[in-house]
Amino acid sequence: MRKELLKVENVTVRFGGLVAVNDFSLNVAQGTIHALIGPNGAGKSTTFNCISRFYQPTSGRIVFDDTDITHAPASEMARYGIARSFQNLELFNELTVLENVMIGAHVHCGGSLPDRLQAKPPAVMRHIEEVIERTGLGPYREHKARNLDFGHQKLLELARALAIRPRLLLLDEPAAGLRNREIASLDRLLTDLVRTDGLTVLIVEHVMQLVMSISDRVTVLNFGTKIAEGTPQEVRNDPAVIEAYLGKEAAHA
């Protein structure tokens, strides 16, 4: 039995009178890829933002590696080893690829004053170069993030998150807007990160091709409530899921 790295326990989020997420629970096992899917407005992003501590749940608990992080500030997440990407790209646009990734390693550049003053701390640079190579951003190292094409900007989001050296990687629609070839390489990269580096990934995604291929488990949300959970195969055949996505008739067809 694998250890549960992330536990979301009975989380409810209300915005005014609107219930965005309703009594939602989720366990993510260490060393797995767990996908969170559902139709638009199902509450996936809200849940995701609660875990990365950008939103505060109205009630419920979030536990990471046996530590309650329900009230921890968002800026502490990197130190816990939780990294996230952003759905609508939140890159440091005017900075170079290298600088973007270096800021990802912010929490590893601490220590004594001379360490903090170093422009390129050697211990950190090795890992940064590795991340840049692995994500295929090497040739663009000195390009400004703003000038990259969309596919590479998405990769830079991922690279920057990896520079945190996370134990849990939260990805918000990493494949949205990518071409098939790019999705295939993202698929390879994520699988490799989990299999060889032991990373744990929670991914919110609409691109089913990717979800079905990489996920160990899939959780389906609709109207803020969990409607199904299981392996990709189980979820694909679940009538409730088909109904949520395609409407009632399709489920009974």
Partner: peptide
Amino acid sequence: ESEVAALAMGVSV
């Protein structure tokens, strides 16, 4: 450049 991204990188804004 981006306060939200800085937060996610562990920068105390």
